[in-house]
Amino acid sequence: MKAETPRPAGSGFGEAIMVPVRLAMGLVDAPLRWVQRKLGLGGMAAFFLLPNMLIFGIFVLLPFFINFAYSMTGGTALFLDDRTFVGTDQYARLFDCSNYIDPNSCTEDTFWTAVGNTAWFVVLQVTLMILFSLVTALILNRELMARSFWRAVFFFPVLLSPVVVGLIWKWILQRQGLLNFALYGFGFEPYTWLNDRNWAFAAAVGVSIWAHMGFYTLILLAGLQAIPKDLYEAAEMDGTRPARAFWRITLPLLMPNLLVVIVLVLIRAVQIFDEVYVLTGGGPGTSTLYLTQYIYETGFATQLRNPGLAAAASILMGMVLVVLTLIQLGLGRSSEKKGSRK
């Protein structure tokens, strides 16, 4: 037996907090007993499920379905009743280009700029994110002093709000900022990084990696720690070289986690908005304008808002995300199966 000393259930402070809660729950109980008598156990299941399903239906399912209706209507009116049906005009407008290689030749050139930017962003960010978080996870999986401290170091930015992340880096990258100060020490002249198209793009990629990499590192680290140590010992007994052990043991066993992480990073990268919006506002020009910002600005922010066009664009983006999520669920299931086979 663990604890021999008798411990009273619940401390005085906790009890004091619980008094009003008890009272409220007790008051609710009497009418609910009546409900239970009327509905039976199955009815009570429905009762417990109802609030969540109601909120979920109104704020997720309903918008999901009327989004299609929005994408088929035109005008600037907000409510569906006041909008005119235009069929597939909004989609046609999105795809109306005289030259499909050059986004500037399209009617909605900003949409295609956003698509192009997002595509580049996804490629760069996902590659670097996976690389950095994998290396960090491998390093954290070594026999380190104070491993939980180091894990915390890399995890810290994950909790920060995108606005805070954006502002911190905006402050560091500005002309009188820390980066220029550091480079000044090496003899470089101060530079306004965020006013440069390429550097702003690089900053968007870098900052989003900075902010989220700890999260993926954690998942990969959990995967690495789940690999039994005796496998490596057996490999060592067999005279396997470390490089070979990495390719033949670590990587295959980490693969389920790695695939899930890749898809998660992809899904997030496609939706990139918050921190970049605060950091660059999409600029300079449209160099860091991504899809979500395009949808937001087309639907709400500009003077001539066009909710229909925004809805059409969001549905196109949604399709990409659904495909990615289905891949993720499939991967999750197959890795579950593998787990159960062990």
């Binding site: 999901f64 989004n67 899809l291 949808i295 639907g299 925004a310 983006m317 949604g318 995300l321």
Partner: peptide, 14 residues
Amino acid sequence: MVPLSVIMVPLYSI
């Protein structure tokens, strides 16, 4: 599968 960025227009109207 239905993140905010996909449904923000109709959600706003609701």
